[in-house]
C-alpha cells in the first residue's frame, strides 16, 4: 500500500487501525535496524521500535506531508535513539567511552560478528564515533541514503553531512588499520 493511501485511510476512524497496521508492517524492519545499529542490543531496539510507532500513532494526524512519511518516521526513530543513549549516560553518570565499551562488549558477544576479526574491529570502530556521527555513518554506509534525505532527518546541511561522513570513514579506517595485526 502506498503512503498516501495509508494516510488517507488513517484519516477515517473506521479504517484507522487497519491503516496503521499496514504502516507498521511496511516500515517496522527499517526502523528496527536503524535503531538496532545505534543501540546494538535487541531488547533495547525492540522497546525503542515500539516507542517510535506509538509516537507515530499519536502525531500522524498532524503530519503535514511536506516531508516523506518514511523520512518523518526516521526522524522520530533517530531522536528516540539519541535520547536513549544520552539518558543512559545521565542515568549511570557514564562518560562517552564507557557507553561505547558497553556496546562493544555486546558486539563481541553477538554470534553474527564472532569469528570475523575484521568485521568485529569495524563494528568497534563505528561504536567509537560520537552518536550523531555514528548516525550519519549508518545512514550513508548501511542504508545508502541520499544526503538530501539525511539532511531532512537530521536537520543538518548536506555539506556538513558530507564532511561528517568523510571524517567518520577516516576514523574507522585508521582504527581498524591500527588494531589489525600484520
Amino acid at each position: 500500500m502506498e503512503d498516501h493511501e495509508i494516510l488517507l485511510k488513517f484519516q477515517d476512524p473506521a479504517s484507522r487501525n487497519l491503516a496503521f497496521n499496514q504502516l507498521v508492517r511496511k516500515y517496522q524492519s527499517k526502523v528496527y535496524w536503524h535503531v538496532r545499529k545505534m543501540v546494538v542490543d535487541h531488547d533495547d531496539a525492540d522497546d525503542l521500535t515500539q516507542d517510535v510507532f506509538v509516537k507515530v500513532w499519536k502525531h500522524l494526524e498532524n503530519f503535514r506531508q511536506d516531508a516523506q512519511l518514511f523520512t518523518w518516521i526516521y526522524r522520530i526513530a533517530t531522536n528516540e535513539c539519541l535520547n536513549f543513549l544520552s539518558s543512559k549516560r545521565r542515568k549511570f553518570l557514564l562518560p562517552l567511552n564507557d557507553v561505547g565499551a558497553e556496546l562493544a562488549a555486546k558486539i563481541e558477544a553477538d554470534p553474527a560478528v564472532a569469528g570475523d576479526e575484521v568485521e568485529l574491529k569495524l563494528q568497534k570502530a563505528i561504536l567509537r564515533l560520537p552518536d550523531k556521527q555514528r548516525l550519519v555513518f549508518n545512514l550513508r554506509y548501511y542504508d545508502e541514503m541520499p544526503y538530501e534525505q539525511m539532511a531532512e532527518i537530521t536537520g543538518t546541511s548536506v555539506g556538513a553531512l558530507k564532511a561528517s561522513y568523510h571524517h567518520a570513514v577516516k576514523k574507522v579506517e585508521e582504527y581498524v588499520t591500527r588494531t589489525t595485526d600484520d
Binding site: N17, F20, N21, V24, R25, Q28, S29, Y32, R36, K37, V40, H42, A45, D46, T49, Q50, F53, V54, W57, K58, I107, D110, P111, A112, V113, E119, L122, Q123, Y142
Partner: peptide, 22 residues
C-alpha cells in the same frame, strides 16, 4: 551487521505495537 532478531519477531511486532496504542 548484527545478528537477526528472534524468528517470527516481525510477525508479532505489529500486534504488540497495536496493543500499546491509546
Amino acid at each position: 551487521p548484527l545478528s537477526e532478531p528472534p524468528a517470527g519477531y516481525f510477525d508479532k511486532l505489529p500486534t504488540q505495537i497495536m496493543a500499546r496504542l491509546p
